[in-house]
């Protein structure tokens, strides 16, 4: 299987879907002539032309709303945000319009749209550019929230997201765009709403997603297995809404211990929300309280060392797993 970058996997998914279906188009800041702020859409203008790969001015509310309107008319827009942090200026278009149209029209009008871009803490972008928006969007009925951690998942999940008749919030990370992984050339898709048990284990369930999975959780679990001999069951959520609680509950009922790793904040954050969903279901099965590893509850600082210290880390994940396994 060829090894490609995360950004190439995203590009492959978009390209294949645009070739398959003329109603799919890509729109966003710098996606066309500049070839993408992070080079995700490199070469796509040349391939598809300006009708289907469209640059926008810096007007997030304007072009995200354009996407919603086009989706209401039956097109399948892919709207790229340079950063999910910028969607705070167009929240109304996503939360009020995209999420509600199908429900509020009594099921008459669908909204098949994908919003995608980099989410979370990148590298020294300071507080305004480091928002983790998953808990903002995952709490909204009417939205689907997908967050892949590998190039393989990115391609399979983006293709399904484009084909879905619902509005999909697709969360990437600038930090892992250059990560490489095996991705088959042939056609495949991955299911939305299904978590992936990446490593079966018996002693503790570790749950994560996206960049937190790629950068903190996966390396921490490798060390815990190798150096400490802890038999971890590692689960990649892939989809944050709808949450695959069934897979999580089954796993915790087997391991009796659980750690959730998310770069989001703790209070009202994604990790806490998942924990709250699980707690009642697995209360009698737990041998230790569920641990949530999250970012410190402060605006994200610019200074490199302060920023590093604010985020979850491999060490923090290892410590949390040892805590719930009493090691």
């Amino acid at each position: 299987m060829p090894e490609i970058q995360f950004r190439q996997a995203l590009r492959a998914a978009m390209t294949e879907e645009m070739e398959r279906d003329d109603s799919v188009f890509l729109m966003g800041e710098e996606v066309a002539q500049y070839n993408g702020a992070y080079k995700v859409s490199e070469g796509m203008l040349k391939r598809f032309g300006p009708r289907r790969v469209i640059d926008t001015p810096i007007s997030e509310a304007g072009f995200s709303g354009l996407g919603v309107g086009a989706a209401m008319a039956g097109l399948r827009p892919i709207i790229e945000f340079m950063s999910w942090s910028f969607t705070l200026v167009c929240l109304d278009q996503l939360v009020n319009n995209a999420a509600n149209i199908h429900y509020m029209s009594g099921g008459q009008i669908k909204c098949p749209i994908v919003f995608r871009g980099g989410n979370g803490i990148a590298h020294q972008l300071a507080a305004t550019h480091s928002h983790r928006v998953e808990s903002i969007y995952a709490r909204i009925p009417g939205l689907v929230v997908v967050c892949p951690s590998t190039p393989y998942d990115a391609k399979g999940l983006l293709k399904t997201s484009i084909r879905s008749d619902d509005p999909v919030i697709f969360l990437e990370s600038e930090i892992i765009l250059s990560d490489r992984g095996e991705v088959p050339d042939e056609e495949f898709t991955l299911p939305i709403g299904k978590a992936h048990v990446e490593r079966p284990g018996a002693e503790v369930t570790v749950i994560s997603y996206g960049k937190s999975m790629a950068r903190f959780t996966r390396p921490a679990v490798a060390r815990l297995v190798e150096e400490d001999g802890i038999d971890v069951e590692l689960i990649d959520l892939r989809t944050l809404r709808p949450l695959d609680t069934l897979t999580l509950i089954e796993s915790i009922r087997k391991t009796n211990r659980c750690v959730i790793v998310s770069e989001d904040y703790g209070y009202c954050g994604m990790g806490d929300a998942i924990q709250a969903r699980l707690h009642k279901e697995v209360f009698d099965d737990l041998d230790a309280p569920i641990e949530v590893v999250h970012s410190d509850e402060i605006p994200i600082p610019f200074n490199h060392h302060l920023e590093e210290a604010t985020m979850p880390s491999v060490e923090r994940v290892i410590q949390a797993v040892k805590e719930v396994t009493y090691r």
């Binding site: 709303g65 354009l66 309107g69 086009a70 008319a73 039956g74 097109l75 827009p77 109304d92």
Partner: peptide
């Protein structure tokens, strides 16, 4: 549609016209 948030639907019109 009727849309409840003042001005919130104006970009949607653009999307319909875009289509």
């Amino acid at each position: 549609g009727g849309h409840g948030i003042v001005g919130g639907h104006i970009p949607l019109a653009l999307g319909l016209a875009f289509s």
